[in-house]
Design a protein around this nucleic acid. Structure first.
Ligand code: SF4
Ligand code: SF4
Lengths: 143, 143
DNA sequence: TATAAGTATACTAAATAGGTATAGAATATG
DNA sequence: CATATTCTATACCTATTTAGTATACTTATA
């Protein structure tokens, strides 16, 4: 019941890109260094974000990455789903047949867990990267 | 971001025991058969529940397991914590030092994830096994 | 005291996580 | 148009975790 390291890296990547000027292209190596992410692993992870349409990539000299959406529109849930696929806190929540008992879809635990998952997902949707960087800037001023 | 198989088995075990007469002792083999859980794995898993004080165990002939608490007092969160340990949806949420960045506890994502975890935990606490078996019995009458 | 229960520990196989390596494709610039 | 630079694609590798099994031991009932 934990996000993977790749997901945490992805959070940092989007957080970093959200702090750039809109449309600014940043190369992988810079993100890697600033956010302490192994470069090769970053390159692999960021492709999930690219394929999900969250970042745009540019190849060749002067290439790199920029956000494909407004930070306000990108939520924690988007990142998690891009990297790990749709969240299912128990295996039976994607496909009822994945229960290795006698899998009636009536299982009351199943239904309870479905609610837990719904609540978790909607909480993850509440945090977008515009708000997150503003919290951060507010902190910077305070110190 | 998923519960383990052991946790799902534990849900079933407590659900099964909750349906017995209060104080009724049931042996491992019976739970194993009724809930489709490999017996050896069940024996290992149920010890976590025993050590957490959720079930009582009895050795020797006529031995087995019974609930140590009223089903009303046992929540999904209790089971998860007994089997998997305290839930931390990101590694930095138990110990701030587990961040492999430069780990300021100010990281805004950290704070957001802490809220997500809090919401998830409190949702898991809303479901107790008395309610869960009542839902089940209500279903039985309907069909 | 035989036997039927759970306990404790250790072991194994399979899957997943985390990371690395290599070859290839696109593109700005001289 | 040649070339260096940047991302892409695929494959590979190692460590950790998950899921399950085996064996020896302890407790308690009849
Ligand atoms: S027993 Fe219930 S909760 Fe567990 S996998 Fe089956 S349907 Fe899902
Ligand atoms: S970067 Fe933030 S969210 Fe990620 S591990 Fe560090 S403190 Fe936690």
């Amino acid at each position: 019941m934990k996000f993977t390291q790749a997901t945490d890296y992805a959070f940092r990547i989007i957080f970093y890109l959200s702090q750039q000027k809109p449309g600014e292209i940043v190369e992988a190596r810079q993100i890697s260094e600033r956010e302490s992410i192994p470069i090769r692993f970053l390159l692999k992870t960021i492709r999930s974000l690219s394929q999900a349409g969250i970042v745009k990539s540019y190849r060749g000299l002067k290439g790199g990455y920029s956000l494909a959406q407004d930070p306000k529109e990108i939520t924690l849930k988007d990142i998690v789903e891009a990297v790990e696929g749709p969240v299912r806190i128990n295996k039976c929540l994607l496909n009822d047949k994945d229960c290795n008992k006698d899998a009636t879809s009536w299982c009351p635990i199943h239904k309870a867990l479905r609610n837990v998952q719904k609540v978790t997902n909607s909480e993850l949707e509440k945090y977008n990267f515009c708000d997150l960087i503003n919290i951060n800037q507010h902190r910077d001023k305070e110190e």
